[in-house]
């Protein structure tokens, strides 16, 4: 057998990227889909990693709610408590963003510190 060459972590590698960004001294927050109803594009467990400049890796939707989630991520980085966000048709006005697919998602946003 040849010596196996281990490739970089497969897939999104969000935890690995989060750890790497922290080592670089970047402030970071994680957003995680914790529940979905109806047709939502990303399943529970999907994550978006955000840094203090608003750079993103991963996703919590098809792109519909990432902008709003980044704003909340910046707030938790500035010391706000972790928060649970709801997006969907029923509270479209509250968040001023909705899911075009008509589904609903809950997203938990927390700082890494």
């Amino acid at each position: 057998m040849t010596t196996p060459t281990d490739a970089a972590p497969a897939g999104d590698a969000i935890p690995e990227t989060a750890a790497a960004w922290r080592r670089e001294g970047r402030r970071i927050a994680l957003a995680t889909v914790v529940s979905t109803w109806g047709s939502s594009p990303r399943p529970a467990g999907s994550q978006l990693l955000v840094d203090g400049d608003g750079a993103m890796v991963g996703s919590v939707s098809g792109g519909c709610i990432e902008g709003a989630v980044v704003q909340e991520a910046l707030a938790v980085m500035d010391g706000a408590a972790p928060r649970l966000l709801s997006f969907g048709v029923s509270n479209e006005e509250a968040w001023a963003v909705g899911l075009a697919c008509g589904g609903k998602v809950e997203v938990f946003v927390e700082a890494v510190e």
């Binding site: 972590p9 935890p15 690995e16 989060a18 750890a19 922290r22 995680t32 938990f108 510190e113």
Partner: peptide, 28 residues
């Protein structure tokens, strides 16, 4: 998420050990 927990999670994934992150959604 605490950095110590993130580091332990990354270590487990690197060593290909199955782990679960349990999060209290009220207080994190």
């Amino acid at each position: 998420m605490k950095a110590t927990l993130l580091d332990a999670l990354v270590a487990a994934r690197t060593e290909k050990r199955a782990v679960v992150v349990a999060t209290d959604l009220a207080d994190g």
